[in-house]
């Protein structure tokens, strides 16, 4: 509802309330209109965060970013990562249009990650999903990871996956390996250690794909057989026993 419409509603409700002989119809109208005059939820950008946006010098870009942040809750994406991106842009003295574009890209990736990881277990997990999408991880891979790990956060698997791709491992084999490790119940420490080993191998000149093969097999040899061996289905049709959103 626009600001003008809210103001008009409040005026009309006030006029109705000031009438001496209030009929039942008037009371009904007030009951309908007054709740509409009150915003349904608090503003998406609280005052301290508004100061962050106000630090952007360019007014059109500032407005665009504010609108993106305002719309974020309705799209089911958290505001915090977007604000962090704004702060990063300001700290790095990026031009306002670039900050706006970066925030827009991030909001799109967060929305995609939310859809693929549904239900996302935390903001951190959602941010890790957005980072993975940025690095080239496909949405079916995210969905399958969620299917394999419905209750445990995927923050670490997705973070390690993104790091390995940044180190030069192709997204597809990297995604397959991480899926296999998650299916076998690899711990966060094992995943992070594997990512570090792959980076060290790559640094010594080993091809990234080879490094991943070698290191992931070492971890796999310590783990039990996969609980859910069906990696082929991109989207699981049913997800019984899934917890609700946090």
């Amino acid at each position: 509802m626009s600001r003008h419409a809210i103001r008009a509603s409040v005026r009309f409700a006030s006029w109705l309330g000031n009438q001496r002989s209030m009929t039942g119809a008037r009371r009904f109208a007030i009951a309908l209109l007054v709740p509409c005059a009150v915003p349904a939820q608090p503003p998406a950008v609280p005052a301290p965060h508004a100061a962050t946006i106000d630090a952007m010098p360019d007014a059109p870009a500032r407005t665009a970013v504010r609108e993106l942040l305002d719309r974020a809750p309705a799209r089911g994406i958290p505001v915090e990562p977007l604000l962090t991106k704004v702060r990063e842009g300001i700290a790095k003295r990026a031009n306002p249009e670039r900050i706006r574009d970066a925030v827009q890209l991030l909001s799109q990736r967060l929305e995609q990650a939310r859809g693929a990881l549904d239900p996302a277990l935390s903001v951190a997990e959602l941010s890790a999903g957005a980072g993975a999408i940025q690095s080239g991880v496909s949405l079916p891979t995210l969905r399958e990871l969620r299917h394999l790990s419905p209750a445990a956060p995927l923050t670490v698997p997705l973070g390690v996956l993104t790091e390995m791709i940044a180190d030069g491992v192709p997204p597809r084999p990297a995604g397959l390996r991480i899926r296999e490790l998650v299916a076998r119940g690899a711990s966060s420490a094992q995943l992070i250690a594997m990512g570090a080993d792959v980076r060290a191998d790559v640094a010594t000149g080993i091809a990234p794909g080879t490094a991943l093969e070698l290191r992931s097999k070492r971890v796999i040899s310590l783990l039990v057989a996969p609980v859910t061996p069906t990696f082929s289905s991109p989207v699981p049709p049913l997800r019984p026993g899934r917890p609700g959103p946090p």
């Binding site: 991106k85 990063e88 980072g131 940025q134």
Partner: peptide
Amino acid sequence: VGLASVRDDLGGSAGLVTVP
């Protein structure tokens, strides 16, 4: 040095670190 380098969408890069 020592962190995976990822694009920041702002024309530069940043190091990515995953903490368990």
